[in-house]
Write a protein that binds this DNA or RNA. Structure first.
Lengths: 239, 239
DNA sequence: CGTTAACTTGAATTTTGTCAATGCCTGTGG
DNA sequence: CCACAGGCATTGACAAAATTCAAGTTAACG
């Protein structure tokens, strides 16, 4: 629906990339000119250690970003959602693997050229900076979660983050999508699949959420979920 | 000793900040012109939530960077060492508190002016970018540590990071400094002081390290320490 | 509609946290 | 320079939380 409009805009605005007259107003504009590539669920866009040749913008679907310890332990350091960029804040090599959780569409941009374009259009700089700051802020939130939160707080924080990401998206009854598996969630939250499963069951029994299949659930009590996420000052509530 | 020299250089090179002739070659040069401020152990440079007015460069001493959860749980997201910058990768407000672990000296730079200078001297951009990338890489390492490493691996990884930071610094027998308390270490590693203490004792008994007071220790078996940190591929060693 | 991977649930185990008591640096003041 | 105090660290015993191991169940996909 929206994509149709933005695709048209792409051709009219920067149909000729070497023409100095075109002025990308936003980082998104930069990517509009790139061909869409598709990856199936489970396919990797790139691997940890690969030469960091490209920057990607996710058009649709979800990516998982992860690292593997020597003995196979996996840590998912983040999920990437439509509109997000991957591969910006690193030097010569990717520090992590980026893999499609479900079928995804991405736009690719050579890093060299990406840097040149950003240098050429200074108004893009603050946008890029803002994205890097958000990435840094998310990493810090995740460190707090991993260092000090309980299993229940981790799961609730995770669900809450997803609720909040859908910015004023459509309806008012929060129904969220969980395209990733329990193992993905466990590796993101520093837990086992069993603990994630038990916690989900627990908050479902408490009617805080209502699962709808394995990959979607309704948030019945958002305030309670926020409390359980450990994001309330001095709760000290009667239980 | 060195500071005398750098202070002199400051006046000769950028004594007149509005003079366009001076060219800071490095980010360090930018800070050379700023007056040194001192903070005692325990004093805060700024608090989480404060308006992010300044960027700081640490001249000497160590800072802890932390956030507090509603009920008092503290998470130290990083330590800052001489030469490091604090307050760069954030927007309008500080996302964390920065506190002196021991007596520190810092140079302060207004964010507004810092941004202007970086815009004015494009050769500073890649340096700033590199620092932000390193910060991001460190945050990811920390997420891996917190999500999947055992207490012993966490403590050994921490010691190893400190060993590696002193880049070819003087002698060859690794003696390291731990200015922070066990509570600081615990809050950084997502453990309790008791677990940190027990783990330290354990690797000391195994002669991997040799404590020298509470705030220093010698690394006797660096290879073993690296193994214990969980950074070796497929160990599968006889125990 | 059937297969199979993904998920859930239960019981036992392990790791780390909590509580409590003791010990010992480190920095202060004599 | 030494003695002392108090905070910081260590150690031990016990408890709690999460993991591991082992079955069962279920929902997603062809």
């Amino acid at each position: 629906m929206l994509s149709q409009g933005t695709v048209l805009r792409k051709w009219s605005v920067i149909g000729n990339p070497s023409d100095g007259a075109d002025q990308p107003q936003t980082l998104e504009d930069l990517f509009q000119g790139q061909i869409e590539e598709k990856f199936d669920a489970g396919e990797a866009l790139f691997w940890e250690g690969d030469a960091a040749k490209d920057v990607f913008q996710l058009v649709s679907g979800v990516l998982r970003i992860y690292r593997i310890l020597g003995d196979g332990r996996r840590v998912i350091t983040g999920f990437v959602y439509p509109g997000d960029l991957v591969g910006v804040s690193l030097r010569d090599r990717y520090l992590y693997t980026a893999e499609a959780v479900n079928a995804v569409r991405v736009r690719r941009f050579g890093r060299r050229r990406f840097d040149e374009e950003v240098a050429r259009f200074p108004e893009l700089r603050p946008q890029l900076f803002a994205r890097v700051c958000d990435e840094m802020a998310a990493a810090q939130d995740q460190m707090v979660l991993l260092a000090r939160k309980t299993a229940e707080e981790r799961v609730c924080s995770f669900l809450l983050t997803i609720v909040r990401r859908r910015d004023a998206q459509d309806d008012r009854l929060p129904m969220i999508d969980l395209p990733m598996t329990r193992l993905d969630i466990a590796d993101y939250l520093g837990l086992t699949i069993e603990t994630v499963s038990r916690t989900m069951t627990k908050i479902a029994r408490a009617k805080v959420v209502a699962p709808s299949g394995r990959h979607a659930l309704a948030i019945n009590r958002l305030t309670r979920l926020t409390e359980l996420a450990g994001e309330i000052e001095e709760p000290e509530l009667a239980h």
